[in-house]
Write a protein that binds this DNA or RNA. Structure first.
Lengths: 356, 356
DNA sequence: TTGAAAGCGCTAACAC
DNA sequence: GTGTTAGCGCTTTCAA
């Protein structure tokens, strides 16, 4: 059996692991050296037009595809940014879209790890570290700060839409305090004084919103008329809690919900109880998600721009990975807060109230 | 500068790409050979308890973590199953959870690629192939069958919850026809004759459901009283379409919606129009998703079991990757259809109707 | 039980 | 412009 026979015999096998076409195979078939194939495949200068064309032709005929792992291994770096997201959170989908884009622009690829019911954040992060990601973007992280600091010792970390203030990793989030102020102010302008804040204890962002809600309403002299009720970040939580809350605070005329999902639960359940939205109950949510626009919701909501969140996150993590040029990567944790704005829809009253 | 100095100096650098701790480093520090470290880290026999303990101690002190890429490269296979999912689809989150579990049990890891507004399925698949996944599980794929066949030439493919019948790749989906029959039968039993099917043209599953709806209602002699209206697979689509539909078919008393999301839109919008659910309008959805259970929805829905869908998909793809044992991997496309059952909630009437 | 040597598929340095 | 050589971090023979 000749060498050629052996080679031919190897290709069509494609067993378990699958012997795939390699640069060697292309080089042999094209009658050139293997590194030359590399040059052609990377599309860098150093090959004549003829060789280039020939190699490309052979490669495509053989169905060659570059092995990214080998490439990363040789290069000594992965140019990979790990993204940890929650599979059940539609807003994370929007963020992923933007993150992929921003990463690609910065010359990086992304690797995804999902947090699900049965797979925690720590697990997801471990998997990503095993792939040698060079940076980590964590969406809605809720691990202990010390945990994240331990991880940040290995690789730059930036959390998105979480509340951390560590000196060892970065974060980017919306301005929860300002957003809450805007919501309170908006409702007051429309004459509401008996306002409920329906929080989500333990979920990132809730602490700040709760504190600000109390401050803002107290400052406005509404201390006795408002209340904070503990709910959650889902439609079900919103629905469940509003029902109770309306029993204990039957004269409430407005609700600020932790996010659009819980706001949706509030609206639907309140309607079922005979309340008209917004005449009997005004509702404001957070996120300005796609569902805020639904015709039957038309939810007033505090907007955070996913594109800005994403590009900021990528910029921060890449800044630490690549201490480029004058490269002043901050040596201490940076915590950026992005502006938010109130998007007014009909769930909080007439779109254009002339008099309050 | 001694060797030890050089080694020490190397570690804390962690520049751009990040010089990470390698087996060599651990071996040097522990005073053993590098392959011995490999043996210890893989937890295979071949090292004395003392060496093992010592190596593990040194490894953890140095913060060693195995490089999965190098491992895969050397082993000649990745033991990776690629999963393409739609980031905006919460149901895919449930599937991912189950798929990860099933894959792990079969000795595989998963690699995720998200389809988003700006990243198509073809792109996502390409990325996964570059990582040398050994099989592909596509959730809600909508590529042309020929496209998928081209891909299936490279690596085993199984689609989940899509309608394909190719001889070159596999699929697993719920029994859309049976589900539709169950829905129609259920509504008829409750006395409904003027039934609408609110479809989602172009979305996988819709064709079969539409056809079956027409067959089943025609067979029941309802040909003139039913109608198919074109909608979509989102809350917004459901809301928009039901409003129109109720104008053209004001006497309709029941709706079968393409999925729970569009059903939710139908319920919310119909209520806003003064309809009571289920008294004025009974609603049935597909998926039996988490939202079907929401207190204000209580949606009757056709259940597909994500765990079963996932384990079947993994089993099929692994079966082709590993033609193990007596290894009778089917040489032609296999298309499994999983049973579905109707979960009755109050959106389609009184939970326990004594008389119809 | 341990070590030495080879090589996975690729890129980078240097020779020709 | 092209080939040769070397080596990324790991697993896998094979010797000792």
């Amino acid at each position: 059996m000749s060498d050629a026979d052996a080679r031919d015999a190897r290709r069509p096998v494609r067993p378990g692991g699958g012997k795939r076409v390699t640069m060697r195979d292309v080089a042999d078939a094209a009658g050139v050296s293997q590194p030359l194939v590399s040059i052609v495949m990377r599309d860098v200068p150093g090959a004549s037009p003829e060789s280039r064309a020939h190699v490309l032709e052979v490669a495509s005929r053989l169905g060659y595809r570059r092995d990214e792992r080998a490439r990363m291994l040789k290069q000594g770096r992965s140019r990979l940014i790990g993204i940890v997201f929650h599979a059940a959170q539609p807003f994370h989908g929007e963020l992923i879209d933007e993150l992929q884009l921003a990463a690609r622009e910065a010359g990086y690829n992304v690797s995804l790890a999902a947090v699900t019911r049965r797979r925690g954040e720590a697990d997801a992060i471990e998997a990503l570290l095993g792939e040698r990601v060079e940076g980590l973007v964590l969406l809605g992280a809720s691990l202990a700060e010390e945990e994240l600091e331990r991880i940040a010792d290995e690789v730059p970390v930036v959390t998105v839409a979480s509340q951390y203030s560590s000196a060892r990793f970065d974060s980017v989030s919306m301005d929860d305090a300002r957003g809450t102020e805007l919501a309170v102010q908006h409702l007051r302008e429309r004459g509401h004084t008996r306002i409920l804040y329906l929080g989500a204890p333990g979920v990132s962002g809730d602490e700040v919103r709760t504190a600000t809600f109390l401050e803002a309403t107290t400052a406005a002299g509404l201390g006795d008329e408002v209340a904070v009720v503990a709910g959650g970040a889902s439609e079900a939580a919103g629905a469940k809690v509003i029902e109770d809350a309306l029993k204990h605070h039957p004269d409430a005329t407005a609700v600020i919900a932790f996010n659009d999902r819980s706001a949706q639960g509030v609206v639907a359940q309140a309607r079922l109880l005979g309340k008209r939205i917004p005449e009997d109950l005004a509702v404001v949510g957070f996120d300005n998600s796609e569902q805020a626009e639904l015709p039957y919701l038309q939810l007033t909501s505090l907007a955070q721009d996913p594109a800005q969140l994403a590009s900021t996150a990528v910029e921060m993590v890449v800044g630490r990975v690549d201490p480029t040029a004058e490269g002043e990567a901050p040596r201490t944790g940076e915590h950026r807060i992005l502006p938010t704005k109130l998007v007014v829809r009909s769930s909080s009253g007439d779109p254009a109230p002339s008099s309050r």
